[in-house]
Amino acid sequence: MSHMTVTAEPAPLDRAPGATPSAVSATDVTRTYGSAEAPVDALRGVTLDVAAGEFTVVMGPSGSGKSTLMHILAGLDRPTSGAVSIGGRDITSLDDRQLTLLRRRHIGFVFQAFNLLPMLTAEENVMLRLQLTGEAADPAWVTELLETVGLFERRHHRPAQLSGGQQQRVALARALVTSPEVLFADEPTGNLDSSASQEVLALLRRATDLHGVTVLLVTHDPRAAAIADRIIHLADGRIVSDRERARDATVLMPESAVLR
């Protein structure tokens, strides 16, 4: 099922084409950092197509370029060459403002360091994104989200009063509140213990299953592989393996306390 993609040629991916529209795609993306004299090639030509509603896990050793890839796919960084599109729209030509608006409406983020605003409560942190767009928050939706992540009772707590796992769940609710098409998660379990990691991963999976959110998860965490639809391995700035995984949700969705 798996095979190596020779990235120099824009070869068709070994998945059934046209089954679902592509949510995120990269074509021959390279990214070079540093000076002209001492260039560092973080990405050396990556071509990738993520279907809508797919849960993709990107793995690879440190320095493999996986974070760079995610940043570029999410419009946080620009490729040195190559094209990136989200929802069929080319984003490499967008200016900062257009990218910001794209991120605001269509993309959700979960970070390793949670990145909640310390002076806001859990609920306020979740609503923040809606306020950025100037939309009126639908209280029922916010409540549902907070209940989903199991923090409705703690919605008036500040981040400092929450555990790491709880903070990351707030961050997840924040990412989902605008109903994004794509959710990028950068090592979301990197700062968490194993049970908290499990909860967060389960919630991420649930986002795809219940709301059809396309998830792109960059991680070291081997447990993440178990819930993925597709696993991509990166090494030295290239995709070295790309395989789909048969879905067997029952094994992967332990009835944790989170999903009461």
Partner: peptide
Amino acid sequence: TRELGMLRAIGMTRRQ
């Protein structure tokens, strides 16, 4: 810095 980066990432414009 980190907080501001997060705000920018989740959709705060430069002007905001």
